[in-house]
């Protein structure tokens, strides 16, 4: 049952030139709820996430976060909301400034929000250990670690401020199968441990059982099916969901 939404996307539209990328998309994410958003490449998942985080503006519809309308919030106004919403990116290494040590990047959200440096440093070590990395990784640079290790560090950065909402944009697609599984297990633990709501975007529906409470299936810029994860996987109704499940089985 849906609890009070922390993020509500209502009738979102987005165009690139004359091409409608998002067509009347609505999604609610409740407090502590993990919503999986699946669809084939190019169906509009990442665009929806960019709109939801206000990285790009939408051309119609409304976005509210904790009941406040942020549809037209300026970038400076969004800075206050970003304390409670964080994002983990598809390409882990590219999500870190190549000229900064990983520890400095993990510390950045804390420093920007006034946490004293000494306290931030101690918290970086704590976070690294929580995501399964040795503390000396704080001194390493992004190009000195593997993709999986870098994604763990990105997760550490995302949870540093204990956000209420986490956006995960294809966070395992750049990783090999074994590492994908480890990352999913870690994310599942952290989401439950920190009672975070999350929007988990992926093209691989097989990753969602055990992490997502419910699933929305996207195709051609629209949500074509939604339901609990087990229901959608066991009894897919839309062609898009069936295709994704077939592809997951094959893989």
């Amino acid at each position: 049952m849906m609890n009070e939404p922390i993020l509500s996307l209502s009738h979102i539209k987005k165009k690139y030139s004359s091409h409608l990328v998002l067509d009347d998309v609505s999604i609610d994410i409740g407090i502590g709820e993990c919503v999986g958003l699946v669809g084939k490449s190019g169906c509009g998942k990442s665009t929806l996430m960019s709109v939801a985080t206000r990285m790009i503006p939408c051309d119609g519809g409304s976005i509210s976060f904790r009941g406040e309308d942020i549809t037209h919030a300026s970038r400076s106004a969004m800075m206050a909301y970003y304390a409670n919403m964080q994002m983990i990116f598809q390409q882990p290494i590219d999500s870190f400034d190549p000229r900064r040590a990983i520890g400095d990047s993990i510390m950045e959200p804390m420093i920007c929000r006034g946490v004293p440096r000494a306290e931030s440093k101690a918290r970086v070590i704590e976070l690294l250990m929580r995501v399964g990395l040795p503390e000396d990784y704080a001194e390493r640079y992004p190009h000195e670690v593997s993709g999986g290790e870098c994604q763990r560090a990105a997760i550490a950065r995302a949870i540093a401020m204990k956000p209420m909402l986490l956006f995960c944009d294809e966070i395992t697609s750049a990783l090999d199968a074994t590492v994908q599984k480890e990352i999913i297990i870690l994310m599942r633990e952290l989401i439950h441990e920190n009672h975070m709501a999350s929007l988990f975007v992926t093209h691989d529906i097989a990753l969602l059982p055990g992490i997502a409470d419910c699933v929305a299936v996207m195709a051609k810029g629209r949500i074509v099916e939604r339901g609990t994860t087990s229901d959608v996987i066991a009894h897919p109704k839309s062609d898009a969901a069936k295709e994704l499940i077939d592809a997951a089985d094959l893989w």
């Binding site: 400076s76 969004m78 964080q86 598809q90 999500s95 190549p98 950045e108 959200p109 920007c112 929000r113």
Partner: peptide, 15 residues
């Protein structure tokens, strides 16, 4: 378009 600039925005950096 590098993700680390978006990450800096989430971290609370101004433009």
């Amino acid at each position: 378009s590098m993700p680390y600039l978006a990450a800096a925005r989430f971290a609370g950096r101004s433009e």
